Computed example of a mutant assay.
Amino acid sequence: MYAAIDRYRDEAGRSPSTLAVATRLGLANTTFRRNFPDIVAEFAVAKTTAADSAVAADAFTALRKDNARLRLANQEHTEHLELATATHPTLKEMIGARRAAARTTASRPAADWGRKGTSWGRR
Results as ranks from 00 to 15, higher is better:
residue 33 R to K: 11
residue 12 A to M: 04
residue 12 A to N: 03
residue 27 L to I: 00
residue 12 A to R: 08
residue 100 A to L: 11
residue 59 A to P: 00
residue 42 E to W: 04
residue 56 A to F: 03
residue 99 R to T: 13
residue 59 A to G: 09
residue 79 E to C: 03
residue 27 L to C: 02
residue 22 A to K: 00
residue 56 A to W: 03
residue 24 R to Q: 15
residue 30 T to E: 13
residue 86 A to K: 09
residue 97 A to K: 07
residue 61 T to R: 07
residue 54 A to D: 09
residue 63 L to F: 07
residue 25 L to K: 04
residue 32 F to M: 07
residue 48 T to F: 15
residue 102 A to T: 06
residue 99 R to H: 05
residue 105 T to W: 13
residue 55 V to A: 13
residue 94 M to R: 06
residue 26 G to L: 03
residue 84 A to K: 10
residue 43 F to L: 03
residue 73 A to R: 15
residue 57 A to Y: 05
residue 99 R to E: 10
residue 84 A to E: 03
residue 89 P to T: 05
residue 52 D to S: 08
residue 106 A to N: 10
residue 38 D to M: 13
residue 106 A to V: 06
residue 96 G to K: 01
residue 89 P to C: 04
residue 57 A to W: 03
residue 74 N to C: 07
residue 98 R to A: 09
residue 84 A to P: 02
residue 40 V to K: 00
residue 63 L to W: 06
residue 79 E to K: 04
residue 66 D to C: 12
residue 72 L to M: 11
residue 19 L to S: 10
residue 71 R to W: 06
residue 47 K to F: 11
residue 110 A to P: 08
residue 72 L to H: 14
residue 81 L to Y: 02
residue 23 T to D: 14
residue 63 L to D: 15
residue 10 D to K: 09
residue 39 I to Q: 06
residue 78 T to H: 13
residue 89 P to D: 01
residue 97 A to F: 07
residue 6 D to C: 07
residue 59 A to R: 10
residue 79 E to H: 05
residue 36 F to P: 03
residue 50 A to K: 09
residue 22 A to W: 00
residue 7 R to N: 07
residue 15 S to E: 13
residue 19 L to Y: 11
residue 60 F to R: 15
residue 108 R to S: 04
